[in-house]
Amino acid sequence: MKHFDVAIIGAGIAGASIASEIGADRSVLLLEAEDHPGYHSTGRSAAFWTESYGGPLVQPLTTASRAFLDNPPAEFSQTGFLRPRGAVNIGRDDEQHLADKFLADFADNGLTMARWSWAQAAALVPDLKPIWKHAIHEPECRDIDVAALHAAYLADAKRKAVDLKCRAPVTRIRKQDQMWELIAGDETYHATVLVNAAGAWADGIARLAGAKPVGIQPLIRNMVQIETDPPSSQDMPLVVGLDGSFYFKPEAGGSYWLSPHDEIPAEPGDVAADELSVAIAIDRFEKVMDVQVKRVTRKWAGLRSFAPDRLPVIGFDSATADLFWFAGQGGFGIQTSPAAAKLARSILLGQTPDESLHGIDASLYAASRFS
Score class of each variant (00 low, 15 high):
residue 207 R to Y: 01
residue 8 I to L: 06
residue 204 G to K: 14
residue 168 A to T: 02
residue 337 S to F: 03
residue 118 W to T: 13
residue 319 A to N: 15
residue 219 L to C: 08
residue 113 M to S: 04
residue 272 A to T: 15
residue 290 D to K: 15
residue 338 P to F: 02
residue 312 P to R: 05
residue 266 A to G: 06
residue 214 V to P: 00
residue 6 V to S: 04
residue 1 M to H: 12
residue 152 A to N: 10
residue 331 G to I: 08
residue 109 N to G: 03
residue 275 E to T: 15
residue 44 R to M: 13
residue 335 Q to P: 04
residue 318 S to F: 01
residue 78 Q to S: 15
residue 250 P to S: 10
residue 289 M to D: 02
residue 114 A to Y: 00
residue 113 M to R: 09
residue 237 P to V: 03
residue 351 Q to F: 00
residue 344 A to V: 08
residue 312 P to D: 06
residue 154 L to C: 09
residue 94 D to G: 08
residue 11 A to N: 11
residue 328 G to T: 07
residue 325 W to T: 06
residue 159 R to L: 07
residue 59 Q to F: 00
residue 150 H to C: 08
residue 175 K to L: 02
residue 188 T to D: 02
residue 247 Y to E: 05
residue 176 Q to L: 14
residue 199 G to S: 12
residue 106 F to H: 14
residue 144 I to T: 03
residue 70 D to H: 11
residue 71 N to F: 03
residue 239 V to M: 09
residue 167 R to M: 11
residue 67 A to R: 13
residue 321 A to Q: 14
residue 124 L to S: 09
residue 366 A to I: 04
residue 29 L to I: 08
residue 44 R to F: 11
residue 37 P to R: 09
residue 230 P to G: 10
residue 300 W to K: 10
residue 176 Q to R: 15
residue 291 V to M: 13
residue 200 A to F: 05
residue 106 F to G: 09
residue 334 I to D: 03
residue 230 P to E: 07
residue 49 W to L: 10
residue 67 A to G: 04
residue 101 K to V: 00
residue 122 A to M: 12
residue 204 G to F: 06
residue 194 L to A: 08
residue 127 D to G: 05
residue 226 I to K: 04
residue 167 R to P: 05
residue 240 V to N: 05
residue 80 G to R: 10
residue 93 D to I: 15
residue 229 D to F: 07
residue 105 D to A: 05
residue 346 S to G: 05
residue 93 D to E: 15
residue 48 F to Q: 04
residue 231 P to G: 04
residue 232 S to T: 07
residue 183 I to M: 12
residue 262 D to F: 07
residue 73 P to W: 06
residue 294 K to M: 14
residue 30 L to D: 00
residue 148 A to L: 11
residue 256 Y to Q: 10
residue 307 A to H: 09
residue 258 L to H: 07
residue 26 R to E: 10
residue 316 F to T: 11
residue 3 H to Y: 04
residue 367 A to W: 01
residue 140 E to L: 02
residue 161 A to T: 14
residue 309 D to Q: 08
residue 282 I to L: 11
residue 345 R to T: 02
residue 326 F to Q: 09
residue 201 W to I: 12
residue 260 P to G: 05
